[in-house]
């Protein structure tokens, strides 16, 4: 039974770390528990979780508190590991089999940083267009995003504090975008769009989902975290705006 508990604790914290909203983690873990004939209760905070397992046949229960390690957000893992919990139940998989599949699914590679760089650059340029930017400002935003995101990736690789990373990347991206002020184009839109690739959309929406599904504390902590990052983006952008405020008016 402790073996099952250890696996479910690992599974649940892995999902929580990869940006899955709380109710899905709870449902998936309980489903895996059900496939092994045990009941699971899960309590989760932003940095730790408490997992409790109860065997209705013997009446035994065991509880463990585990740490949630921050991982990169990954929707591939979200989909695959959710599917794994259904397979465990439908195909009556053994614990070893589930553990084996879990290892294979979590070993899949993440998207390469270079590919992400290009894709996000194009995305932010399209975003600029959606706000009414012209071709010149789209080009400026594309390059500003490349530089900003590259800075973010380098800093993340060195394990620098999250808030510093967001402030610095927003500052550098908007500073690069301020080149648009020299051209005859929609420079304000370019400036406004350049740091937007940093907006933590996934935690914001996950937070909202958690709140409406009744995990209010978890949802608030997610949203609060996202808001702090947004404040950091605003500070980085403000630094650029302070430098160029006379040109902007």
């Amino acid at each position: 039974m402790t073996e099952t508990l250890d696996f479910i604790a690992e599974y649940a914290t892995y999902l929580l770390g990869s940006g899955v909203h709380t109710s899905r983690v709870v449902r998936n873990s309980q489903r895996i528990g059900a496939s092994q004939g045990v009941e699971i209760q899960l309590m989760s905070f932003q940095k730790n979780s408490i997992v409790s397992i109860h065997d209705p046949r013997s009446g035994e229960s065991v509880t463990r508190a585990v740490r949630i390690h921050p991982l990169p957000i990954s929707f591939v893992r979200n989909s695959d590991l959710s599917a794994l919990s259904w397979d465990a139940l439908d195909e009556k998989l053994s614990l070893d089999e589930i553990r084996q599949r879990f290892k294979e699914l979590t070993a899949k590679p993440y998207i390469r940083p270079r590919n992400a760089l290009l894709a996000v650059g194009l995305a932010n340029a399209s975003f600029c267009r959606l706000f009414g930017g012209d071709w010149i400002s789209m080009a400026v935003v594309f390059f500003a995003t490349l530089v900003g995101l590259a800075v973010k990736q380098r800093m993340q690789a060195r394990g620098i504090n999250h808030f510093l990373i967001f402030t610095a990347s927003a500052f550098i991206a908007s500073l690069c975008a301020s080149v648009a002020l020299r051209f005859d184009c929609t420079a304000q839109i370019a400036l406004a769009t350049s740091p937007l690739f940093l907006v933590p959309g996934v935690p914001l929406i996950n937070g909202a989902i958690d709140i409406v599904e009744g995990y209010i504390l978890n949802g608030c902590s997610r949203i609060f975290n996202a808001l702090l990052l947004i404040v950091c983006i605003a500070i980085g952008l403000s630094a650029t705006l302070m430098i160029f405020r006379n040109t902007l008016l």
Binding site: G19, S74, V120, A123, N124
Partner: peptide, 14 residues
């Protein structure tokens, strides 16, 4: 352009 933006930003969440 919305589709392009969505695809590009989505790469950040794998």
């Amino acid at each position: 352009f919305a589709a392009l933006a969505a695809i590009g930003f989505s790469t950040l969440s794998d």
